[in-house]
Write a protein that binds this DNA or RNA. Structure first.
Lengths: 118, 118
DNA sequence: CCAATTGTTCAATAACTTTTGAACTAAGGA
DNA sequence: TCCTTAGTTCAAAAGTTATTGAACAATTGG
C-alpha cells in the first residue's frame, strides 16, 4: 500500500460523490466492482483516457478513498475499497453501481469480456 | 412548475453525483429530506450562502433533477424530487442522506429547529 | 547492460465551477 | 402608487479540475 490512502473514517462523503460524478472514474469503479477481488492494472482502462490522464483520475480515486493502489513491480494493482466504503457509507456504492449499470449512455470498460472459469 | 426541469428518465447519474458532491447543495438536500412534503422557500438556506449564490446552487439542483422549484407569488417553493430519484436510482438518495447525517463535519441548516406539532 | 513496459511528474493550457456585487423583475401590502 | 420582499440575471473575477505532451523513474526480460 505504498501510496497515500485515507483511513476509513477519513473518507469524506462530498469528495466521494464528486469523484464518482465523473464518467471516466465511474466507469473505472464499475469495472472494479464487476471484477471484485481481481486486482487490475491501469492498462485495463486505456480505452477510457490517455495514460497520463488515467494516472490523474486513478490518483483522485485513491485520494478520495474509493480505490486502493499497490505498487507491484512496475505495475499498480488497483482494487475497490468496498469494505471500507460499505462500512462508512452503507448502501451507497451498491446503489451507485446499480444505477450506473442501468444507464446505457455511460462509458464502460471491458463490457464484452469473456468470463474465464478456473 | 414554471422553470425547466428534466424528465425523470433524463436524470443523469454523474450529474446528480457531481451536484450532491458540493457541501452547500448537500446541506440543502438534507434539509429538504428532513422536511419532506413541506415546500421550502430559498430564504431558509440563507445561512449557507449569499442570496445570489443560493440562486446558483438551487438552479444546479433543479437542472440536475434533484429538486423541483415552483414559482408562487414572489417565492419559489422547493421540494425534493424523491419519487423520481427513487424510481430512477433506487436506494441512492437514502444512502446519501444517511451518510450525510452521520457526518458531523458537514454544513447543515435548521438542525436545532423546534418541531411544531399540529 | 540494454530495451521495453508501466506508470509518474511537471508545467502549460483549456475548460469548467463557484462566488461576488450591482442592477433588475415581479408580486403583494400599506 | 410606492415600498418591501423574494428571488433572478449578468458580467467579472477567482478558484478548481481536466487534459495534454515531454521528460522521467523503476522494474523486468533478453
Amino acid at each position: 500500500m505504498t501510496l497515500p490512502h485515507p483511513a476509513t473514517d477519513q473518507i469524506s462523503l462530498p469528495i466521494v460523490l464528486a469523484v464518482l460524478g465523473d464518467p471516466t472514474r465511474l466507469a473505472i469503479v464499475r469495472y472494479l466492482a464487476r471484477k471484485e477481488g481481481v486486482p487490475m492494472n491501469c492498462s485495463k482502462f486505456l480505452d477510457l483516457a490517455s495514460k497520463t490522464n488515467l494516472s490523474y483520475h486513478l490518483a483522485k480515486l485513491r485520494e478520495a478513498g474509493v480505490t486502493r493502489s499497490e505498487a507491484v513491480g512496475t505495475s499498480r494493482l488497483i482494487t475497490l475499497r468496498r469494505d471500507d466504503l460499505d462500512r462508512r457509507f452503507p448502501g451507497l456504492l451498491d446503489s451507485v453501481i446499480a444505477a450506473a449499470d442501468g444507464d446505457k449512455d455511460l462509458p464502460a470498460v471491458g463490457v464484452s469480456e469473456v468470463e474465464v472459469s478456473a
